[in-house]
Design a protein around this nucleic acid. Sequence first.
DNA 1: AAAGATATTGTAATCGATTCCATTCAGTGA
DNA 2: TCACTGAATGGAATCGATTACAATATCTTT
Lengths: 348, 348
Amino acid sequence: MSESKIVDVARRAKVSVATVSRVLNRSEQVSEKTKQRVLKAIAEMNYTPNAMAKNLRSKRTMTLGIVVSDIEVSYYAEIIKGVENMANSLDYKIIICDAQNKQERELEYVSLLQNRTVDGMIFVTPYMTSKELIAVAEEGYSIAVIGRYIEHESIPCAFTDNVKIAKDVVNHLLEQGHERIAFLSGYADAIDSYERLEGYMKALRDAGLPFIPDLIDNGDFNESGGFRSFLRLREKNDAFTAVFAANDEMALGVYKACRELSIQIPSELAVVGVDNIRLTKYVTPKLSTVEQPKYTMGALLTEKLIDQMNHNEFSDRRVFKVDSKLLVRESSSYAIERSSNQGEANTS
Amino acid sequence: MSESKIVDVARRAKVSVATVSRVLNRSEQVSEKTKQRVLKAIAEMNYTPNAMAKNLRSKRTMTLGIVVSDIEVSYYAEIIKGVENMANSLDYKIIICDAQNKQERELEYVSLLQNRTVDGMIFVTPYMTSKELIAVAEEGYSIAVIGRYIEHESIPCAFTDNVKIAKDVVNHLLEQGHERIAFLSGYADAIDSYERLEGYMKALRDAGLPFIPDLIDNGDFNESGGFRSFLRLREKNDAFTAVFAANDEMALGVYKACRELSIQIPSELAVVGVDNIRLTKYVTPKLSTVEQPKYTMGALLTEKLIDQMNHNEFSDRRVFKVDSKLLVRESSSYAIERSSNQGEANTS
DNA sequence: AAAGATATTGTAATCGATTCCATTCAGTGA
DNA sequence: TCACTGAATGGAATCGATTACAATATCTTT
């Protein structure tokens, strides 16, 4: 047990506690020979400073919180990885807060900030409103947001352009000859859903195609929600030839439904998702999707947040609009599907 | 900003700090009317107790650490989820420690215990030796281990019987008519690898089959390692008709190699993995594997660890040997593969 | 109504570090 | 040798809570 405290070290090295503290923190202020003496005592006693006492005095915990709506979803897992690595390299630890898909739990974690358990917090949650997030920041807490733009000078944010994502997807499907494209949205009140719907509508309008409300349904960003949503969609209007799912998980739900209904992808139905989670490359046919630099957003924003916390002033650059990239794979391209299948079967 | 401290509340409610502290912690000891007065003051000032001060005084942080070798691997993600949920329900937070597949980083996290950043730690790491883990416990720190048996009264551990897992898999393959079964191990010095190899050898011996060293190779528990390992195996001895991979990730590496070499699974080669990660159900053909109750192990052990920390005595039950279950799917059963494929194509 | 028991409240020490301010020490120039 | 300067060191307050102990108020009981 690391029982020894700073006074024990001081006693052993025959110096005051102040001196021990100095060699630990600002060793340039102490003479070489006492410094060696103290270091020796520290080593002999196997002393490590008590982090709790340190925190109390310095008013910092060197810990960050990250709130995600479900750790198991690999979209979040990759962001966490980015956050964790950057945080560690800057000597911070991270506490993960899993809202477990329950909207109300997201805000609960703000208490970690209030009682000083963490120095700052990163929110990766589609449900909390901008207003709620801004309110937290205005109480004086350091927060950052991944996944959307926030109109507030003290909140760093990183996000991709959801409207562009949706337009890219829809344009791609139009190019493939699809004219009746269904949109499988996430929760209706999630910001991502809203913006992607907007892009979907814009792209249709630009192409001179009508907007048909029956071609839209709301899932819940999960596979099972996508499954149910797709079935509802078919009941309302089964004339569509392509589905744009607001994320990959829901697209997988569509896959499942198609398997049960014996609908061939992509020959009978094209499917495109968003996020480029790992699974997309393993399913058959491989799922077309949109890549977002998840790891990078996590790392970038963590660096920014820590920087801002430590300098206590808002940096010039706080808004990071990162690039997304459409990845056309087998699920939305009949040509690709056929040649690729052959390739996989015959290449040695 | 939650600037107010306990003295401010005391002043406002016209009581002493001790009284305020009492209504916060042991409210039965204070009269109803002063209690109400204090509560009112707390609410009016929006006071929250400073966790750092609390920690220092109580010598507890209500935080647990969990060390895994890679958060992105879904095997760990599910364990984390179990740990996190149980921890939260007992008012603990968890700090995740990602060793990022670097063996030397695992032990570094022990410093979190030494400096009292966490009250206890859960290790889910195949690389650290039992000796190292026991040494940590004997310094007086609370730890628990998932994934293997530890011979030490103060360390709760949960694990599946690796020997049994391997025997189940090999017996299953023998039943399918395979006689030359390759074993794709993980890191040679990981405990899991060692135990599974043992089970593999035992099952062969029991069946009266020879043990052929050329049918064994070491991967690294990752997909890419499985890929390379499989190619090496083929160079050494390509007469095998089945592969038992020490985990699913490596089995996926085998899939990849087979695709490149145009080897049909399962007709030309049967493949079985271990862990039942989510991906196994999405690949074609679906991967046979062994289910381990990951979430349950995480939750169970967390509960045990916290209980032990708080009662400061070792509980009667600290060793949890949980059941594993062989899941035969398409990759190791030609019959199942054919009917299942037909099923997927035709069922409505 | 007094004495003793019990319930309520307050004072002050404590947790283990950091750091301001004061003091001591060594070195320099006159 | 003395006064002065800057460097090195020490003493003690401080961070914000909890809690042992002491003091006071309230309630029983006779």
